[in-house]
Design a protein around this nucleic acid. Structure first.
Length: 243
DNA sequence: TAGGCCATCTGGTCCT
DNA sequence: AGGACCAGATGGCCTA
């Protein structure tokens, strides 16, 4: 049953999909009427030409349509840009999600959330984001493990030993596949980074190394191979999500 | 056919 | 005022 109130709660809704996805002709902007149901739709009221409450300025129907077109176009552009960014993220992530391992008899991709299997289909947005997060966490863990091993190696080599700076020269570890990483890209020869922050003519002991590592972690400006090593801090990474 | 994923429209809010 | 961002709503496409 329609009361006058529900009648004026009629609103224009989208959903004109009579053409290819993403393609709409201008006539599709003509709103159609549908009933607003329930309190969940409180965010929406009268839209389009029927909107009656507090118009900031009197607009003709044509002006309102034009304004709507502009706003819709901006929003479409925004979402398309977001999708472009998502695609570029997929390009990075997909290679690392394509080597499943057998977990309990079932194939599981190491960086994918359980249940998400890249079977040739495009990664969904949510899978891409979860995959990226896991990937980043794994990279962070790898980096911390590298630093720990580095400390042990420097101790093992003694005070007069050579500091394995080469191990530090690559910045991020290069992953050649899930669970495998190189310290530098294969085509790049290792070399001691020319870094003003790098200790010169010394063979630091572990404490010195630790101090040095922490100092380079906090030095913002230098772009040398060492200092490009990003700080990875994920002490009990917070898993709360706003909203 | 149900459910997942997605694109789009839309109004509200915040920021510049 | 206008733009960016967000969330709700809707309908289309695809797959199990």
């Amino acid at each position: 049953m329609f009361s006058l109130y529900t009648f004026f709660r009629m609103q224009a809704v989208p959903g004109f999909r009579c053409r290819e996805r993403g393609e709409r002709s201008s006539h599709q902007l003509v709103p159609r009427m549908v009933r607003v149901t329930g309190p969940g739709s409180s965010a929406v009221g009268l839209q389009g030409p029927l909107r009656a409450s507090k118009p900031p300025r009197e607009l003709s129907v044509e002006e309102q349509h034009e304004l709507r077109r502009k706003i819709n176009s901006r929003e479409r552009k925004r979402m398309q840009d977001l999708n472009v960014a998502m695609d570029s993220l997929r390009e990075v992530m997909v290679p690392y999600s394509s080597s499943p391992t057998s977990v309990g008899g079932a194939l599981q991709h190491p960086y994918l959330p359980p249940g998400a299997s890249p079977t040739g289909r495009r990664l969904s947005k949510i899978s891409t984001l979860v995959l990226a997060r896991n990937y980043i966490l794994i990279l962070g863990s790898s980096l911390q493990e590298m630093r720990r091993l580095l400390g042990e190696v420097s101790i093992g080599m003694g005070v007069g030993g050579t500091v394995p700076r080469l191990l530090l020269a690559g910045g991020w570890p290069f992953l050649t596949g899930p669970g495998q990483f190189l310290l530098t890209p294969p085509e790049q020869q290792l070399g001691v980074a020319k870094c003003p922050l790098l200790p010169q003519n010394t063979s630091p002991a572990q404490e010195e190394l630790s101090v040095w590592l922490s100092s380079i972690s906090e030095s913002p400006g230098c772009q040398c191979g060492v200092c490009r090593t990003p700080r990875v801090l994920h002490v009990n990474p917070a898993t709360h999500f706003p909203k």
